[in-house]
Design a protein around this nucleic acid. Structure first.
Lengths: 329, 329
DNA sequence: ATCAATTCATGATACGTATCATGAAGATGC
DNA sequence: GCATCTTCATGATACGTATCATGAATTGAT
């Protein structure tokens, strides 16, 4: 109704209510104020449609209730999920999200950390691939999937356990000769342990296995070559595949389709991540599901922790198996 | 190297350089300053590692170089794309993005607009489904896919043209009996014109067509019923489908698979949006592609326009056809 | 050489808020 | 009824910045 051009300020409210500026502040912040004064102030606030100005508050208090989230992009479904759940976890705590895309560019990552600090964010959550990133030590900083040092908390899902689970599942589903396929990033990070868990379980189970890890940048055709090399008389001699990523699993499936190998009849495939088609439909592959919501929640609660210094330095969250049509169950 | 606890301030720089505060400000903002002074200040800035504090700047100038983007979520691939390109367009202009998820909740949309204003964003870009949203008139506001009034610029792709294009394409590919399938949102928005364009073109072409638009909330099984009802002797009597969304097209394809109707041999299908599997792989359906990057760029340039009042109220961007395997070409 | 015009550093101010020190008023104890 | 303690509104201050008015110094013109 009222035509306040720029929003009313505390001074306006104070004048309207006939009280001091400080009193208004204490009402707004829910501190102890005499009943009659509180009523007058609240009435004035209502009448003027006052909303606090977060810039002024930030300048005074030094904190913004904003957390920066740095991810490569939002097009990759896993990152999109992460962004969504992080935002939800933040919102639950009345915090805002400053979203930054690194696009796997290490210079950009550095700029963004600087920019975030310039914007006085209260903390940073980063999923980064920069091998020698300098983590600022004057602001709460949490990483995802990447362990830097004991002073930088890292949240990840149980990648080793996931690999273990995949091997056991393939064995249980009757596989007798399996392989692990992955395109590795240039750095060693938590997801690298998917292979370790898988190999370890295969050894335990006495399950014959092979491993192909492509270095980042090597052409995908090498992976197709690998598959071709395991064909005998038009049949694949592997009957189980654990692929490091749902995305890669999907590509493998497409390649196999061209080679007239049928999934899951001839070969069963388990991916990793738990990506769903269009975000909400049935999974596209049988997979080891990362608990994205938990990861996001943990990142947020960690980065906002009052006692940030005493926070554990590596938090591992449990994964689960999800049937998605590329295995027999 | 230096152990500045909290970042240096302009006053610190001024003291270090032996100049006045205002001089530092003018150097930082690239205004005219005498050469000797500029050198002294720049040296002091370098020495102290000064970075400007954006909160102080905002409090003084009133603008934040931040735009709020309100979308339902980031899990839906189309929204994820949009978020990505909007951020890129903003970054190019040295702006930040405050990302808000409405989750299709109209109350949340209202809260978020209020929150955004409280955070003094310089403008808002919103993709909303709230039928009676009150658009604030004291801040640049741009909508996507939804026309409110001539005073609120709306950016959309050429939905009518897209429908037209789809019909022509199906005709060109030999279809003789087609249908339009869609789940409509509860409100009338630009995407509703996909149907209009399609129908209009079918009439022009003399192409027999049918239309099924499910109201939001009606079960998907109605769509399957529609397909079942068009089966005769185990064959679908429709040979071309235009589906309002890639997501829905995908579901239709899954249903047809169960009915042993093969795509594109028995029926050709064109979707809408241009979604790619995992964000970067081959398209999952033949489709009408929305120019998401252009849309994002236009939204940003519009909302940041210096002469916001004189901006066109409806901007329509051209769509293209993309083959994706569910048509014959 | 004198005056007007220009350049440009200075110092002060305001943006909106939270909090500290102050002091007035009321409550309690003897 | 006096002193002590508590309650709580007040007014002032600082956070970091951009800009306005001021005036000093330099330039150009006559």
């Amino acid at each position: 109704m009222s035509k306040e051009k720029a929003g009313a300020t505390m001074a306006d409210v104070a004048r309207e209510a006939g009280v001091a500026l400080g009193t208004v502040s204490r009402v707004v912040n829910g501190q102890q104020v005499g009943e009659e004064f509180r009523a007058k102030v609240e009435e004035a606030i209502r009448r003027l449609g006052y909303q606090y100005n977060s810039t002024g508050r930030t300048l005074r208090t030094g904190h913004t209730n904003t957390i920066a989230l740095i991810v490569p992009n939002t097009i990759t479904p896993y990152f999109a999920l992460l962004v969504h759940y992080v935002n939800m976890a933040l919102e639950k705590r009345n915090c805002r999200m400053l979203l930054c895309f690194s696009e796997y560019d290490r210079d950009r990552e550095i700029e963004m950390i600087q920019m975030a600090k310039q914007n006085q964010v209260d903390g940073i959550i980063a999923l980064t691939y920069n091998p020698n990133l300098v983590i600022p030590d004057d602001i709460p900083f949490v990483t995802i999937d990447r362990f830097f040092s004991t002073s930088v908390p890292c949240i990840a899902s149980d990648n080793f356990g996931g690999g273990h689970l995949a091997a056991n599942k393939l064995k249980e589903l009757g596989c007798s000769r399996v392989a692990f396929l992955q395109v590795s990033s240039t750095i060693t990070n938590e997801p690298s342990k998917r292979k370790d868990g898988f190999v370890s379980a295969c050894v335990e189970l006495g399950l014959p296995f092979e491993v192909l890890v492509l270095e980042d940048g090597q052409p995908y055709t090498l992976l197709e070559d690998f598959l071709e090399n395991h064909m005998e008389n038009g049949k694949l001699i592997l009957d189980g595949l654990f692929v490091g990523t749902d995305t890669l699993a999907w590509r493998v499936i497409q390649s196999l389709k061209k080679m007239h190998v049928s999934v899951p009849e001839d070969v069963q495939i388990i991916g990793f991540d738990g990506i769903r088609m269009f975000g909400n439909m049935e999974p596209v592959v049988s997979t080891i599901v990362q608990p994205v919501a938990d990861i996001a929640e943990t990142c947020v609660s960690t980065v906002l922790s009052k006692h940030f210094a005493n926070v554990p330095s590596l938090i591992c969250l449990p994964v689960t198996y999800l049937y998605g049509g590329t295995t027999k169950a």
